[in-house]
């Protein structure tokens, strides 16, 4: 008797992809229902619930919890283990809310702060590359950009079951490019060439350029600096943090080249990508020290 293995494999693959599709659809519907239910509550109530859920999740996620506590202890050795643990829980709860707010961005009205020079860049319409971080309300930076300057573009890492989330971005005039899509990079480049304001989260680990972060050597993504160099667009730094009353504040800064005019007139003396990223990371560190309970400490940030 002959067994049609190829046929069996094909049927198995089809069943598997059907199952995946069903899983994705179910997850998508559940998330939508959950968001809809949360939307019936006040933002303050939502914050309380999501922060609590975040803290509870961390209680059960041993690996994530230990990583956060380790990272905090490495970065701020002056803290006791008790203080580091408390900070890990507070930060995880706050970040859960910051992330969840991506689902109702149209309800987020951030206060925006910047100096005159940065304001001119944002209003010029000629585009900029913006280095941002996973602190406070994660997507408030592209949201603030969309209010000031258009088009506002960001790169996101959306899981398949949440692809509908793109709607939440387009509702507030943010173009979200899915990092996982095949043409993500070419789309990003094209947008950059069309005077877009591109916000890129660059506080995660990536094997691209060496930086010093909280006194330790590690590596960082350098895409934002490279993109700024390629497009000759200004490079900004921005971050969004929560105030005690829940209000989101977004701060924009221009990353100035502090070399003398004489040094800058020489093209060969242009700041290298490493130097630019080092500067961004120095600033990131200061911001995190200022708002330690709003940064996401659970990444494997110092993996090398």
């Amino acid at each position: 008797m002959k067994v049609d293995n190829a046929g069996k494999l094909k049927t198995k693959t089809i069943t598997h992809s059907k199952l995946t599709l069903i899983k994705q659809k179910t997850s998508s519907v559940l998330i939508k229902l959950l968001v809809r239910a949360l939307m019936t509550l006040t933002r303050e109530r939502r914050k309380k619930i999501i922060t609590k859920i975040g803290k509870t999740i961390l209680r059960f996620a041993k690996k994530t919890r230990n990583r956060a506590i380790n990272n905090i202890s490495k970065a701020m050795p002056e803290l006791s283990i008790k203080e580091a643990t408390q900070l890990a829980f507070d930060a995880y709860g706050n970040c859960a809310f910051g992330l969840a707010e991506s689902f109702w961005l149209s309800q987020v009205e951030p206060d925006i702060f910047c100096d005159e020079e940065t304001l001119q860049i944002l209003q010029s319409g000629t585009g900029a590359c913006i280095a941002t971080m996973h602190i406070g309300c994660y997507e408030a930076v592209p949201l603030a950009v969309a209010k000031f300057a258009k088009p506002s573009v960001t790169l996101t890492n959306i899981p398949d079951f949440l692809e509908d989330a793109i709607d939440f971005y387009s509702d507030v005039n943010i173009t979200a490019i899915n990092k996982n899509s095949a043409n993500a990079f070419s789309e990003l480049l094209t947008r950059a060439g069309n005077n877009a304001y591109i916000s890129l989260h660059c506080d995660l680990y990536a094997n691209q350029t060496e930086v010093s972060f909280f006194g330790q050597k590690t590596k960082a993504p350098a895409g934002v600096a490279l993109l700024a160099k390629m497009t000759k667009n200004p490079l900004l730094l921005a971050y969004a943090v929560y105030q005690d009353d829940g209000q989101v504040q977004v701060f924009f800064e221009t990353l100035k080249d502090e070399r003398s005019d004489e040094q800058m007139s020489e093209p060969k003396n242009e700041q290298s990508v490493e130097q630019v990223m080092a500067k961004i990371y120095q600033r990131f560190e200061k911001i995190i020290r200022q708002y330690p309970s709003q940064w996401y400490w659970s990444y494997n940030r110092w993996k090398n």
Partner: peptide, 26 residues
């Protein structure tokens, strides 16, 4: 990798004193 592609473009611009319209490159 996309990161290396950007590095290559910048390196070529610098080395050969070129201005490459990067948006066309892809």
């Amino acid at each position: 990798k996309s990161f290396d592609f950007m590095l290559l473009m910048l390196e070529l611009e610098e080395k050969f004193n070129l201005k490459l319209p990067f948006e066309q490159a892809l």
